[in-house]
Computed example of a mutant assay.
Amino acid sequence: MFKDHANIINAISTAGEISGRKKLQKIVYIAKKLSFPFHEKFQFHFYGPYSEELTLRIEELCEMGYLNEVREKKAGYYQYCYSITDAGQDFLSIQEVEMPALEACLLDMNERNARFLELVSTVLYFDTLEKEEVTEKIFTLKSKQKYTPEEIDEAYEYIEQLKTKAKPN
């Protein structure tokens, strides 16, 4: 049980700070699809893959004092920023979390915006389909996002870059 909590704390610690609940969901989902040991179950939701389990774990970790959740007002909405606390660092120091290749992937993903990560995670969610079918699904399910064919190509290229980074040396 605590292993899954430690993996999430480690991810946030590695990233330094993650701004946005949606972004956090997408980062963990993408990392899971890259074969990092995240075990939360995801379903397709309004903004792509979403895990109720992950949401509950984050809430638990905040309540236990291992993560900071800061609510910031942005142009008419609130965004939540997550970072590790000293207690979280202490907890992490007694856990064995071995994911050395995760750092490069996480730092890269954390520099991307949530909209792009939503596209990448959606592509990965439908990774058993042909690219043309995935593109069709994106245009249908994500029509409000107005993704372009070029952005979809960029998402596929980005996934390949992440796969290369995720491979252990």
Rank of each mutant, 00 (worst) to 15 (best):
K32Q: 15
Y29V: 01
T135N: 01
A31E: 06
K32T: 11
E103P: 02
L92F: 02
A31N: 09
E132Y: 09
F46C: 04
F44D: 04
D127V: 09
I8S: 00
Q145Y: 15
K131S: 14
E60H: 09
E63V: 15
K142F: 08
V123M: 02
P149C: 00
A15I: 12
E52W: 01
L24I: 12
I58N: 09
E17K: 12
M64R: 15
V120Q: 01
M1F: 12
E17S: 14
A114Q: 08
V123N: 03
A31L: 15
D4N: 07
I152T: 05
E132S: 05
I12S: 06
A114N: 03
T85L: 09
Y50K: 11
N7F: 05
R115Q: 14
K167F: 07
H45E: 02
M1V: 14
A87I: 03
N113I: 12
V28Q: 01
K146R: 10
H39Y: 08
K41S: 14
V120L: 00
S121C: 15
E157I: 09
A15D: 00
L117W: 03
Y158S: 02
I58P: 09
Q43C: 07
Q89R: 15
Y158V: 01
E154P: 13
E63M: 11
F126A: 05
S35D: 15
L56G: 06
A15H: 00
L24G: 06
P100W: 11
F36I: 00
N7I: 11
Y77W: 08
K33C: 11
V134P: 09
A15N: 00
K74R: 12
A166D: 09
I159Q: 01
Y50E: 10
E52K: 11
I58K: 05
L54H: 08
L24N: 03
K26P: 14
R21Y: 07
E154C: 07
Q25H: 08
A101G: 08
C81H: 15
F139M: 04
F2G: 05
H45C: 01
S83P: 01
P100C: 04
F91Q: 13
E160K: 12
L24D: 04
Y158G: 00
A166Y: 10
